[in-house]
Nucleic acid binder design. Structure first.
Lengths: 212, 212
DNA sequence: TAGATTGTTAATCGATTAACAATC
DNA sequence: TAGATTGTTAATCGATTAACAATC
């Protein structure tokens, strides 16, 4: 095994893809799979797959392949998706509501434990079984919930402020949907999701015709 | 200028970030900006910024910097975000509805021109000014709309089928929210957005504590 | 044993960044 | 002219992939 501590981000992203794929395989009662099978079915290079796994140990049997159930549960453990993880959502607009109502999260052990919004018209309302709260409650609420993950779906103008509040409340990683670059301390990890960025890249591809 | 045709994907992603940033600068009446300013305010390396732009031409004046308004409009042109682009949304559940109702899209010249869903309970209903249609209408509808961009927000099980239908209807690039790897012809570009993948990567970061 | 497939090393490829001559 | 900053080349860094000995 590759004892180095530096796991490339692309490797982590693919790990999540493998996990999804393995869950589907298990549902279709496939017991064993080889790295070549993975390549055929996902398009991810077989050597890449093996290399990705090598950061975390040995998972297969030479000449045989990988046990689907075992690999699945070991990847889940690596990604800490084997135990329920509380998450807070800040911003209960269209997107926030969609996330709160998304059943896939719970299936992957992410549980939305609280929702916040500064709109007085939303505070106190119930969404997906949660009462929407004022962001000023964030700190006190999170003493109880102890969420380390926050999802930010507020407009760009409010994002930095709520990010600061979330961090003060003990959040350590942030999934940011606001189209803005958040300034955070080094110890905090942020991942940005931007529909507009995705669409912009696709839009460029339209101009150039071909490309794989 | 770097006449090579191969623009790295990360460069395109950053281009979208620059565009957003420049729009904000323009709103604050900043007229000129240097690559060092960009680094200070976005965290993106100054050389990187200059290199990214170099794929598309010359944009600045040595000793002076870049004209914000001009750079903004030229990047918009490169990404084809200077003219209204029709988009179809397939899947009008929580996420699909959120996208249909997202004003940021129109601001960036993406116009959702049709929405489809196979749920009979949704077909015929109006959402965000659009009548939800049966996916079997996709082909005929798109003869009129001529959208080349489709956003897929159906469950995993239905995603490949609707992708095929979208492609048959003339769609050339796909933004896929379904947690599945779509099989598409080489000429089609797909970008995947996966909340679960994002959360999984963040979840891993929690296990390792530090990291930037 | 022969065939298959792993885990890992080494080679390749591509993206980031530092350095600097050219230019305003 | 002196100072600032560009665009681009070259050096560095990191990720992908091919190759293969080890192993079932």
């Amino acid at each position: 095994m590759n004892t180095s501590l530096k796991v490339p981000i692309p490797t982590l992203e693919r790990l999540a893809t493998y996990l999804r794929f393995l869950i589907d395989l298990e549902a279709s009662h496939v017991e064993t799979i080889s790295s070549t099978d993975v390549e055929r079915q996902t398009g991810i290079n077989a050597a890449q797959f093996r290399k990705d796994l090598s950061y975390f140990g040995e998972f297969g049997k030479p000449g045989v392949g990988y046990n689907v159930a075992e690999l699945q549960s070991r990847i889940a453990r690596i990604l800490e998706i084997d135990q329920l993880q509380p998450v807070i959502v800040i911003g209960a607009g269209n997107l926030g509501s969609a996330l709160i109502g998304y059943p896939g999260l719970k299936e992957h052990k992410f549980e939305i434990s609280a929702a916040f919004d500064s709109d007085p018209g939303k505070i106190g309302r119930v969404q997906g079984g949660l009462v929407v709260q004022d962001p000023s409650e964030l700190r006190i609420e999170n003493e109880r919930i102890r969420a380390r993950i926050a999802i930010i779906c507020v407009p760009a103008g409010a994002a930095q402020t709520v990010a600061n509040e979330a961090i003060a409340a003990g959040v350590r990683v942030i999934l940011n949907f606001a189209p803005i670059i958040l300034k955070v301390p080094d110890r905090i990890t942020v991942r940005n999701v931007s529909f507009l960025q995705e669409l912009a890249v696709l839009s460029y591809h339209l101009t150039t015709e071909q490309r794989k």
